[in-house]
């Protein structure tokens, strides 16, 4: 990854002179101050709130401390437990589909022919599209009456004709996942193409001469060599999938039933529909801890070379 670069030290030594110190803090402090106000303060504030009772409908000020009650409540709350399950399934679906599709696209476009280079240039577009538009376009195209995708699937697999993609529990979550996979898989493909380019061709040539089939080369050589990149992008996608919110609002509103209420969507409901800020803070801190674990692994891997 190009992000991990060696830092340069010779100037740094020189810059360590005390005379340069004031400038350093003048340049560094404004950013740190803004981060402290916009991230650290709310993070700590909601941590404190997570131990308090605070219903915003009754009072603009937080109420008394209730110890661990909000956290205990979460683990007996069917809605929360359901959202944990939905988020876990969603992460599994969207990560595995993005990886498989991304890998397939990368292998297909790995040879630098003119057509392939043209198609690679198109791969960034879906990711840049606003999530709400991803949601709206997929919702339309999966409509069994007039949606092109629903009709194409119906033509290939007749039993799925007239299938309500967003009206059934599993397929609704799958549809949300697909609207995200549409953005991520092409981007993964770009990352994999970069990594494939660094695999020496002698390696695969030699295997071919020894009589290995394309399938064997893929499983025994290509995939193991891609493993580090796959690990990094999978972590990135897990972190992003835990934040799934926009398309839930646009495509399903959490339904049918509560089958697409992701953890993120559930916290939104408690905090900004029920205005139960104490409980919402506790649940959001559970989310912080889960995401923190993956973020830790991600940052550690990316910075691995330096620290």
């Amino acid at each position: 990854m190009a992000i991990v670069q060696k830092s340069s030290n010779s100037l740094a030594e020189e810059a360590n002179k005390p005379t340069r110190n004031p400038l350093r803090w003048v340049l560094l402090l404004p950013a740190l101050l803004v981060i402290a106000v916009t991230v650290i303060y709310p993070l700590l504030s909601s941590f404190v709130t997570s131990f308090r009772e605070w219903r915003l409908i009754y009072s603009p000020r937080p109420g008394g401390f209730v110890g661990l009650e909000n956290y205990v409540r979460a683990f007996s709350d069917a809605g929360f437990l359901n959202s944990l399950q939905v988020s876990a399934l969603y992460v599994l679906l969207s990560v595995s589909l993005s990886l498989m599709l991304g890998l397939a696209i990368a292998l297909l476009l790995s040879k630098p022919t003119r057509l392939n280079i043209f198609v690679r240039a198109l791969l960034i577009f879906p990711f840049a599209v606003a999530p709400i538009l991803k949601g709206f376009s997929w919702r339309f195209m999966l409509n069994p009456e007039y949606g092109v995708y629903a009709q194409m699937i119906g033509a290939v697999i007749p039993p799925l004709k007239d299938y309500l993609w967003l009206g059934n529990e599993f397929s609704a979550l799958l549809s949300i996942a697909m609207s995200e996979v549409w953005g991520w898989a092409p981007l993964f493909a770009l990352m994999f193409i970069g990594a494939l380019g660094s695999i020496p061709s002698e390696l695969t040539e030699a295997a071919r001469v020894d009589g290995a089939t394309g399938w064997q080369i893929f499983w025994k050589i290509t995939l193991p060599l891609l493993a580090p990149v796959i690990y990094i992008v999978a972590l990135l996608k897990i972190i992003s999938s835990l934040k799934m919110f926009d398309q839930v609002v646009i495509m399903t509103g959490g339904g049918p039933g509560d089958s697409t209420q992701t953890l993120y969507y559930y916290v939104y409901q408690i905090a900004f529909r029920n205005l139960d800020m104490g409980y919402a803070s506790a649940v959001s801190w559970i989310l912080v801890l889960v995401m923190g674990l993956f973020a830790f692994l991600y940052v550690r891997t990316l910075l691995g070379g330096r620290h």
Partner: peptide, 11 residues
């Protein structure tokens, strides 16, 4: 960078 928006939004 990895603090979820919802935590920032509540306070």
């Amino acid at each position: 960078q990895f603090v979820p928006a919802v935590v920032v939004a509540i306070p």
